[in-house]
Simulated scan of single mutants.
Amino acid sequence: MMYIGSHLSISKGYEATVRQAISIGANTFQFFTRNPRGAKARKLDLDDIRIADELCLEHDFGPLLAHAPYTYNFASNKDKTWDLAKNLLKDDLARLSYLNSCKYIVMHPGNHLGEGIDYGIKRIAEGINYVLQGKENTMLLLETMSGKGTEVGYRFEQLRGIIDRVDYSEQVGVCFDICHVYSAGYDIVDNLDGVVKEFDEKIGLHKLKAIHLNDSQHELDSRKDRHACIGEGSVGLDGILNIINHPSLKDIPLFLETPNEAEGHKREIKLLRYGCNSL
Rank of each mutant, 00 (worst) to 15 (best):
R155G: 05
F156M: 13
S169M: 11
L132S: 00
Y119E: 11
N137T: 12
S146C: 15
K148E: 15
G147K: 05
I162P: 01
I121E: 00
N129G: 07
A125K: 01
E170N: 14
A125R: 00
L141R: 04
R155W: 06
S146Q: 15
I121S: 00
K135F: 06
G127W: 00
Y130F: 11
I163K: 00
L142M: 12
M139P: 09
I128Y: 02
F156Q: 10
M145D: 05
E143F: 06
E136K: 04
E126Y: 05
D167T: 15
G116D: 08
K148G: 15
V131I: 07
E157R: 14
I128W: 00
S169A: 13
G116R: 04
M145G: 06
S169L: 12
S146T: 14
Q171E: 12
G147I: 08
Q158F: 04
G161W: 00
L140F: 10
G116I: 05
R165P: 11
K135C: 08
S169F: 11
G134D: 03
E151H: 08
S169W: 09
R123C: 02
Q171C: 11
V152A: 06
A125L: 03
T144M: 12
D118I: 08
E136L: 05
Y154L: 11
Y119W: 11
L132C: 03
R155K: 14
M145S: 08
V152R: 00
Q158Y: 03
L159D: 02
K148I: 15
I128L: 09
T138I: 07
E157T: 14
E126I: 03
L132R: 00
E157N: 13
E157W: 07
G153M: 08
G116Y: 06
Q133I: 13
V131E: 01
I163Q: 01
D167H: 15
I163F: 01
T150E: 09
E157M: 12
G149N: 12
D164Q: 11
K148P: 14
T138L: 06
R155S: 08
E136A: 05
I124G: 01
D164T: 05
I128P: 00
E126T: 06
L141I: 11
G161Y: 00
G134V: 02
A125T: 02
E151K: 07
Q133E: 15
G149D: 13
G153C: 10
A125S: 07
D167I: 15
G134E: 03
R123S: 03
A125Q: 02
D167M: 15
N129V: 04
T144I: 12
Q171F: 10
R123L: 03
A125E: 03
D167A: 15
T150N: 09
T144V: 13
Y154N: 10
I117L: 10
I128H: 01
T144G: 08
I117R: 05
D118F: 05
D118K: 10
K122L: 13
Y168Q: 13
Y154R: 09
R155F: 06
G120I: 00
Y130D: 11
D118N: 11
V166E: 03
M145F: 07
I117S: 07
D118R: 10
R165M: 14
E170H: 14
I124C: 05
M139K: 12
G120R: 00
